[in-house]
């Protein structure tokens, strides 16, 4: 791409378009998790008693803690975007780092929770789990897949934020040009909202 073409792209940069693209991407992500939610509802409808027993084994305290962590991180990324829009670069970076730290804390917490379960012999295809009823096998299978897939999204989000952090530090993202950060924030809110549905489905409904 020569200079002239670069200039054309620069000229043609379209913020509304970038946002539209991100929303479409989020829509497809929602349908990805939507497939899992369909499976969850189908199997819950078929095995209500088993799901009831299995969900009581999850640590509500840890789940609630993670919900608080993730909601707070959504706040910090939103304020980070507000900060960069007002030209407060340092503040924006600090808030972004706080978001990343909260994301990692979420993952650590999740890892701890998984670790305890695995220690008790409850993981897919484990002898202890296979000895249980079919509904409980399904519940924990879905638990691992859905929270695992969500955790993967948290991890991707943290990586995206670290790229954003570098871009802010370099000045590529600034008061005039912040749409990539806004889009990263949108993605983070998606991760957040999916957890808001996972949390009651696995921890609260018994």
């Amino acid at each position: 791409m020569d200079e002239a073409k670069e200039a054309v792209f620069e000229e043609a940069r379209d913020y509304t378009g970038a946002k539209l693209g991100m929303w479409l991407f989020i829509l497809s992500e929602l349908l990805l998790f939507g497939g899992m939610f369909i499976l969850y509802s189908g199997y819950r409808y078929k095995n209500p008693a088993d799901f009831h027993h299995a969900s009581r084994e999850l640590e509500v305290v840890l789940g609630t803690l993670n919900t608080i962590i993730l909601l707070t991180s959504s706040l910090s990324v939103a304020t980070s975007i507000a900060a960069i829009q007002k030209g407060q670069r340092k503040l924006s970076m600090v808030l972004l780092m706080a978001t990343m730290a909260l994301g990692l804390l979420f993952l650590a917490n999740k890892g701890f929770e998984w670790g305890t379960k695995i220690e008790h012999g409850i993981y897919p295809n484990s002898p202890t789990l296979l000895a249980r009823s079919k509904g409980e096998i399904l519940f924990f299978g879905l638990y691992y897949v859905m929270t695992g897939l969500h955790g993967l999204h948290v991890l991707v989000g943290v990586c995206v934020f670290s790229v954003m952090l570098i871009l802010i530090a370099k000045g590529t993202l600034n008061q005039m040009r912040f749409v990539p950060l806004e889009n990263a924030g949108l993605y983070w809110h998606l991760v957040d909202i999916i957890w808001i549905f996972l949390y009651p489905l696995f921890y609260l409904i018994t």
Binding site: S28, E29, L31, L32, F33, G34, G35, M36, L39, Y43, N47, P124, N125, L130, S133, K134, G135, I137, L138, G141, L142, Y144, V145, L149
Partner: peptide, 26 residues
């Protein structure tokens, strides 16, 4: 995305035996 997640589940099933589509596990 719906086939995406379905295919991921086949892979999960093959490697970890999650049981989501396996009648032997419900």
């Amino acid at each position: 995305p719906v086939i995406g997640i379905t295919l991921i589940l086949i892979i999960m099933e093959r490697f970890f035996g999650v049981g989501v589509f396996d009648p032997a596990k419900g």
